[in-house]
Simulated assay, not measured.
Amino acid sequence: MAAKLIGSTRIKFKTDLSKSLASLLECPVCFDFMTPPITQCLNGHNICSVCKPQLTLCPTCREPLTITSRNVALENIAETCFTDNRSDAKLKVPSPQHRVYECLAGKSKGCTWKGRRSDLWTHVQQNHDRLAMHWRKETQVFRVSNHDFRVSGTSTQLISVLDQLFWYQFRQDSSKNKWWQAIQYIGSKKQASTYRYTLEFGPVPGDSLKRSIVYSRVTHPDDDHVDSIFKSSDCFNTDLNSIKHFVTKNNSLQFKVKIERT
């Protein structure tokens, strides 16, 4: 019998085949293993019982979750894949790769919170409210007044959009005359490749040259350290002089950020 240690709980897979089948039990929202009851939308996409009450649309196909059903076949697979000796049968088994998340929004100010992905939004909203952004649309306009290009700084904000969570990362280094921005998907690397972010600057009203900058790429996985992302330049990066072209006459900087499914 194969066994795997996940956190402090030992899950015993009944066969090696069960280990392969267990990959089918990963919830597309929280990435934990699904245990009964397992809900499916009209198109057959599965959602765990913890995430289902928080959603109105299927995270896979966007079908409204007004009509759902139990996926009894997958529940039977769950029972076949592993045995669990815990006293609380409803307690979910954390996925080994996505069990613990850090609060990057408050980390620079000493926040040491770590926990489940499903609890991250509540934590940031309650403890770092100004750094939690809930988007109703895929595209948002950022407006910054009196931005100081002489001072270096960083900012990390949590974005909730498309029923998913993302980190918005920004850094400015005045000594190197550099500007960086990136969007990280909070979850698996596989899922990160299914989302794309686009940054768009300009044109500014009154600019006869109608200058603009547009940058787009798939979202970075959140387990890629932001320092590595910025150092590799595999993100939006430019010199501060280029950004200054998009400051309006009233000293306001405006740009668009879009997050969409690929």
Score class of each variant (00 low, 15 high):
A3F: 07
L5E: 02
T9E: 14
R10Q: 13
K12F: 03
D16F: 11
L17D: 06
S18V: 05
S18N: 04
S18K: 08
Q40H: 06
S49R: 04
Q54V: 05
L55T: 01
C58E: 03
P59E: 11
C61D: 15
C61Y: 12
R62K: 15
A73W: 06
A78C: 14
T80N: 06
T80C: 05
C81V: 06
T83E: 02
N85H: 07
H98A: 05
R99D: 08
G106H: 10
K107L: 14
K114W: 00
K114M: 03
D119F: 11
V124K: 05
N127H: 09
L131Y: 04
K137G: 04
K137W: 11
Q140D: 03
V144Y: 01
S145P: 01
S145L: 09
N146S: 15
H147W: 15
H147A: 13
F149M: 11
V151A: 15
G153W: 12
L158Y: 07
I159S: 10
L162M: 10
Q164D: 02
W167H: 08
W167C: 04
W167P: 07
Q172H: 14
K176P: 06
N177M: 03
W180N: 00
Q181A: 04
S193K: 12
Y195A: 05
T198C: 11
L199Q: 06
E200L: 14
F201E: 09
P221I: 10
D223Q: 12
D223S: 07
S228N: 12
S233F: 12
S242G: 02
S242W: 05
I243R: 10
I243C: 11
F246R: 02
K249N: 09
N251G: 01
N251A: 05
S252R: 02
Q254T: 09
V257A: 08
I259D: 00
R261Y: 00
